[in-house]
């Protein structure tokens, strides 16, 4: 529970408590403005009743033909607001808009293969692994399980335009592609 509202350019002044986190990157303002200037309806913010920013999602619509889909570029929730289903709510909106406004076939996202908590969360939301993308993330320099650290799962969830669930497959974890092959 929280206030769900649109992401605005000036939110960059107050997103520090979300971004001061190892897993969350602070990009140049142009990165956020680039998304807002094209897909403002796929970007949203969760705010606490007292007005603190709790998390946000940045998304886009992309792909050709039957690959036309909504994509979750960044989703982040501040540590003190985790386990409150905030990500679930923001994803719900992004899926709804991808389905209704953009008429996409599916929504997808990338997640580090080591990030078990997130993978479980997405699976709970109806996502499944479509393929494993090698060396998608630059190394974080952590050493342990570096392969899983660098590789990403591309996870997908079909939308109403794909009733036959053609955009997903059951053996996705075994399909390996290199980072150059994905957009």
């Amino acid at each position: 529970m929280s206030i769900l509202r649109s992401f605005k350019a000036c939110d960059m002044f107050t997103f520090n408590n979300v971004n001061l986190d190892v897993w969350t990157e602070t990009y140049s303002p142009g990165f956020y403005l680039g998304y807002l200037s094209r897909w403002p309806d796929l970007c949203s913010v969760q705010e606490s009743p007292t007005g603190t920013m709790m998390g946000y999602v940045i998304g886009k619509a992309e792909g050709q033909g039957s690959e036309w889909h909504g994509h979750v570029t960044a989703i982040s929730v501040a540590p003190e607001y985790r386990r409150l289903s905030l990500a679930r709510k923001m994803m719900g909106l992004l899926e709804f808009v991808s389905d209704q406004n953009y008429r996409g076939f599916f929504v997808d996202l990338y997640v580090r293969c080591t990030n078990q908590v997130a993978i479980e969360l997405y699976e709970g939301l109806g996502y499944s692994v479509y393929r494993r993308v090698r060396e998608y993330y630059g190394s974080l320099g952590l050493g342990k399980g570096s392969k899983d650290e660098e590789d990403a799962f591309d996870m997908r969830k079909p939308l109403s335009r794909d009733p036959g669930r053609r955009s997903v497959r059951s053996n996705g974890r075994d399909i390996h592609v290199s980072a150059h092959d994905v957009s």
Partner: peptide, 15 residues
């Protein structure tokens, strides 16, 4: 994306 334009200008100006 008209809804964004005043916000971008506000951001630019505030920085």
């Amino acid at each position: 994306k008209y809804s964004q334009i005043p916000e971008f200008i506000k951001f630019e100006n505030q920085v």
